[in-house]
Deep mutational scan, measured.
Amino acid sequence: MDTYKLILNGKTLKGETTTEAVDAATAEKVFKHAANEHGVHGHWTYDPETKTFTVTE
C-alpha cells in the first residue's frame, strides 16, 4: 500500500488529508467520495510523482 494525499482548494473548505490505498484509482475514489460529502466539486488533478490529488473549485 502507498500513501496518497488530497489537497482541497474549495470555495468554503480548504485542507489536506491522506489515505492508504493499493493504487491511485482506489485513492481517487476515496478522495472524490470525501470531497462530495463536504460539498467540494471542481477540477481534479493528479501528480503521480508526489501521489497528490488536488481539487480546485
Results as ranks from 00 to 15, higher is better:
40 V>D: 02
51 K>N: 05
26 T>S: 13
20 E>I: 13
38 H>D: 05
40 V>W: 07
21 A>T: 04
56 T>M: 06
29 K>C: 08
10 G>D: 03
10 G>F: 15
46 Y>L: 02
45 T>Q: 10
39 G>T: 04
16 E>A: 07
33 H>K: 14
17 T>C: 15
19 T>Q: 05
38 H>Q: 14
23 D>E: 03
29 K>E: 13
33 H>D: 14
41 H>N: 11
20 E>D: 10
23 D>Q: 03
33 H>C: 11
6 L>S: 01
4 Y>T: 01
38 H>Y: 15
32 K>W: 11
50 T>A: 06
22 V>A: 13
56 T>G: 04
40 V>H: 03
56 T>R: 05
11 K>Q: 14
28 E>F: 15
40 V>E: 03
55 V>H: 02
4 Y>L: 01
5 K>F: 08
56 T>N: 09
46 Y>S: 00
10 G>L: 15
26 T>W: 08
9 N>A: 07
10 G>I: 09
43 H>W: 13
45 T>E: 12
9 N>P: 04
34 A>F: 15
31 F>A: 01
39 G>E: 05
17 T>Y: 15
49 E>P: 08
24 A>V: 12
48 P>V: 08
18 T>Y: 15
49 E>M: 12
18 T>E: 08
15 G>K: 15
6 L>W: 04
30 V>K: 08
23 D>R: 02
15 G>R: 12
27 A>C: 02
18 T>H: 10
42 G>A: 03
21 A>H: 02
50 T>R: 07
35 A>F: 05
21 A>G: 03
39 G>P: 03
36 N>V: 11
21 A>D: 02
41 H>M: 10
17 T>W: 15
26 T>Y: 08
28 E>I: 07
44 W>M: 04
20 E>G: 05
13 L>Q: 10
50 T>L: 08
1 M>N: 09
41 H>Y: 14
20 E>R: 11
54 T>Q: 06
10 G>Y: 07
25 A>L: 10
37 E>K: 12
42 G>T: 02
1 M>D: 06
13 L>R: 04
2 D>E: 14
20 E>Y: 12
10 G>N: 04
29 K>G: 09
21 A>L: 02
51 K>V: 02
11 K>L: 15
45 T>D: 12
29 K>A: 14
57 E>L: 05
9 N>C: 13
32 K>T: 06
42 G>D: 02
29 K>Y: 09
30 V>M: 10
39 G>Y: 05
46 Y>H: 01
16 E>K: 05
47 D>M: 05
7 I>D: 03
14 K>R: 12
23 D>S: 08
27 A>H: 00
1 M>G: 09
48 P>M: 07
3 T>C: 10
17 T>I: 15
39 G>S: 06
7 I>L: 06
39 G>C: 06
4 Y>W: 04
48 P>D: 09
43 H>Q: 13
10 G>R: 03
3 T>S: 07
30 V>F: 14
45 T>S: 13
19 T>D: 02
42 G>M: 03
50 T>N: 09
2 D>R: 09
18 T>G: 04
36 N>R: 13
43 H>Y: 14
15 G>E: 11
57 E>S: 05
6 L>C: 10
8 L>K: 01
53 F>H: 01
14 K>M: 10
15 G>Y: 15
56 T>L: 05
47 D>Y: 05
55 V>K: 01
54 T>V: 08
9 N>Q: 09
57 E>R: 03
22 V>P: 15
12 T>D: 13
9 N>F: 08
49 E>G: 11
48 P>T: 07
14 K>G: 05
34 A>T: 14
52 T>K: 03
32 K>V: 08
14 K>L: 08
44 W>C: 02
55 V>Y: 03
25 A>M: 09
27 A>N: 00
15 G>F: 15
33 H>M: 12
22 V>F: 12
28 E>R: 06
2 D>C: 12
40 V>M: 08
29 K>F: 09
49 E>F: 12
25 A>S: 09
55 V>D: 00
52 T>F: 03
36 N>Y: 14
42 G>Q: 02
44 W>S: 01
37 E>W: 09
55 V>N: 02
30 V>Y: 14
47 D>H: 07
49 E>W: 10
23 D>T: 04
45 T>H: 12
34 A>P: 02
18 T>I: 08
7 I>W: 04
51 K>M: 07
37 E>G: 08
43 H>L: 13
16 E>N: 05
41 H>W: 10
4 Y>R: 00
38 H>W: 14
47 D>E: 09
20 E>P: 06
16 E>H: 08
56 T>I: 08
51 K>P: 01
30 V>L: 13
26 T>M: 11
45 T>R: 07
15 G>A: 15
49 E>S: 13
49 E>T: 13
27 A>V: 02
13 L>W: 15
25 A>T: 09
42 G>S: 02
24 A>R: 11
6 L>I: 04
50 T>I: 06
2 D>A: 13
19 T>A: 07
25 A>H: 10
